[in-house]
Amino acid sequence: MSLPFDLPPSDPNLRLRARGAAAQPAGRFEPYARAREHDGWDIPEDERLARTEVSVERPRSVITRNTSPDLPFDRSLNPYRGCEHGCIYCFARPSHGYLGLSPGLDFETRLVARPDAPRVLESELRKPGYSVRPIAIGTNTDPYQPIEQKWGVMRGVLEVLAAHRHPVAIVTRGSLILRDLDVLGDMAGAGLVQVGISITTLDASLARAMEPRAPSPPTRIRMIRELTRAGVPVRVMAAPMIPGLTDHELEAILTEARRAGAKAASMMPVRLPHEVAPLFADWLERHRPGQAEKVLGRIRDMRGGKLNDPRFGARMKGEGEMAELLRQRFALSCKRLGLARALPDLDCTQFHLPPRRGDQLELF
């Protein structure tokens, strides 16, 4: 199969270990693209491993607002930019273009940590007139990706939210969330937190290739079980469902998650915005060449003949017979398993400003 895209190859002397992308396409905002050309010198170069690099950003604000009609939240927070999980289909890859970096390998190897996020968040919560609504975390890049083990930004953010009794909805596939069960359990008891765990496939070999540094499917099922035991309401996110590759697992994913204690479920067909489409097509050709044409064809069937449909109302759902069949299967499975479509609303009435050192104490 000939790909409908022309991707620049990565450095041939760069050894990729547990990486999703194998190319470095220029971001859509870049005026120039790079191409490798032989210089005429047959001098062997040493092979080097593609390693993760982390730089630091000192943000002035961390709460991002949105007015999208497709999203159930109006504010979010990202402790990191880029994601070491390396999921090849990740819709957040194009966001690296805003940094002048590639949505390809750069997205999973050149990461940005925001260690000041907890302090800045506290400052924003204390601004006069702040109106409380749940903050969504993990809606772009995963807050519990591997570098969280060293940087602990998400832990700091969570402690600030807990101290302010501020509601939060977390989306992750990172097992480091279990480290924070102490805080999450207390917040859950007060109706202040809910967690979504995304599971794309139960096939460990497929997950290893498609989501190379994310926890395995059995680990994610265990995460649901342990969060549930701690009293944290969990929603399983069968997302993204990739037609012709993972969509046949929909019922099995929901069943296993329900057995582990998930109370609600959601489902979303894959969407491939901007640079994600050629990266995903390249991955298919490398890892599933016999299925590439079928998978891309079925995605087009759900996206009006294209690999992505950015329109509000359609981008999260897809259209056509394939998309409708997937929705019907999801609805029937949820009904059979007793899975709700959404978790109960979080409590926004408990928000308060904890006293700081030097503050005048209240008499009552």
Rank of each mutant, 00 (worst) to 15 (best):
R235A: 10
M268C: 06
R235V: 08
R225T: 09
R235Q: 10
R220G: 05
M223L: 06
M268W: 03
A239H: 10
V234G: 02
R225E: 10
I253H: 07
D247R: 07
V232Y: 05
R258V: 00
R258Q: 02
G231P: 05
V232S: 04
E256I: 04
S266I: 04
P217I: 11
R220Y: 06
R229F: 01
M267W: 02
H248R: 13
H248V: 12
A230G: 03
R235E: 07
E256T: 09
A281D: 11
E226I: 06
T255D: 11
T228H: 02
R220D: 02
A260F: 01
T219K: 12
L245Q: 10
A257T: 05
L272G: 09
P215I: 04
S216A: 15
E256W: 07
V236F: 03
E249I: 08
L279H: 14
M267A: 07
L250D: 08
P240Q: 14
E256C: 09
P217H: 12
E249A: 11
S216L: 13
T246W: 12
T246K: 07
R225C: 01
V234W: 00
L227K: 05
E249K: 07
L272N: 11
T228L: 02
A262W: 00
I221P: 02
R259A: 01
A214N: 12
L227F: 02
P243S: 13
G261P: 01
V276N: 13
E256D: 09
A265F: 00
R229N: 01
R222K: 13
E251R: 11
R213Y: 07
R258I: 00
G261V: 01
P269Q: 08
I242E: 12
L279A: 14
R222T: 12
S266P: 04
E275T: 15
A281H: 06
H248E: 14
T246L: 05
